[in-house]
């Protein structure tokens, strides 16, 4: 299905947020997520089903002031 990941149209096979992270190469990485602008805690990724057109944000630690 087609979803939007970090602002870019993306085609994925998986349907749960946890599986999508794995599919996109984030398995085991230190990242945090939001779906359609709402934060999704790591503990809920497995049970969070993603639908066609959903917008996912995947963020990681970065330099800041």
């Amino acid at each position: 299905m087609k979803i939007v990941v970090n602002g870019a149209a993306t085609e994925v096979q998986a349907t749960s947020l946890e599986e999508i992270l794995d599919e996109l190469g984030h398995g085991g990485a230190k990242v945090a997520t939001a779906v359609n602008e709402d934060f999704v805690p790591a503990a809920l990724r497995d049970s969070t089903e993603i639908l066609e057109g959903d917008r996912i944000e995947i963020v990681a630690p970065r330099q800041g002031g």
Binding site: N6, G7, L24, G25, H26, A29, K30, V31, A32, E57, I58, V59, A60, P61, R62, Q63, G64, G65
Partner: peptide, 13 residues
């Protein structure tokens, strides 16, 4: 520190 978008093939974070 901050949080910013992370690409799976980059892993800069």
């Amino acid at each position: 520190v901050s949080v910013r978008r992370e690409a799976g093939d980059d892993q800069a974070g």
